[in-house]
Amino acid sequence: MPLIELHDLSKTYNTAAVPVQAVKNVSLQIEKQEFTAIVGPSGSGKTTLLNLIGGLDKPTGGSIFVEGKDIATLKANDLIDFRLHHIGFVFQAYNLIPVFTAKENVEFIMLLQGVSRAKREQRALELLESVGLGDKVNSFPPQLSGGQQQRVAVARALASRPSFVLADEPTANLDSHTAGALLDMMAQLNREYGMTFIFSTHDPRVIKRARRVVTLEDGAVKSDVRQNEGKRET
């Protein structure tokens, strides 16, 4: 069973004068442990697609199965719980609670899951260590660089032990070098823990690191290629 199955997925926005079909009949399967980039020009529907997969937006056509479950059947509150337990999110910005330290930010998601305090603290420290922020656990987001903040966001996304991580342009606010480093770190987590990542990006240096690249154009899948198979990055 694939981790994620999209069947003929469509999303049309009727808010504007002319309806905008942001996602057009996308059918896609994503397996566990994939490291997939969704790419395409601005307005091609990357964010919309990720939001649909993440249950943040409702499709106007087609269906989404996550681990065999049709997420359209979930009620609003169950959908929030579903996100909490199954999906790790990394957004472009505003990921972190500014009044919480790095550690508290990572812990918070586990608090929402009802994890005990001792386990939360331990896991938060481990995760921050594994994203290379072992020395910044007590720093507040404003004291961290953009790249460091995104690392905390990745650590938080992993903290809930999700089935997969969705990251919409996680590197958009980072310089190219930092973006590369963040991606290397994500790739490492993918290899070491088998964590599935689906991320969108414009950045060629980021695209280079993906193992599968799904290209969108005007909301439709234009190409779907695998790369770096078996390749070991440094």
């Binding site: 929030i80 337990h85 999110f89 957004f91 990921n95 998601i109 929402l112 938080r156």
Partner: peptide, 16 residues
Amino acid sequence: AKEFGVLISVGMKRKR
């Protein structure tokens, strides 16, 4: 508003 959006997205219930 943005922060609230992120929190609800990652799985924080509105009630909380």
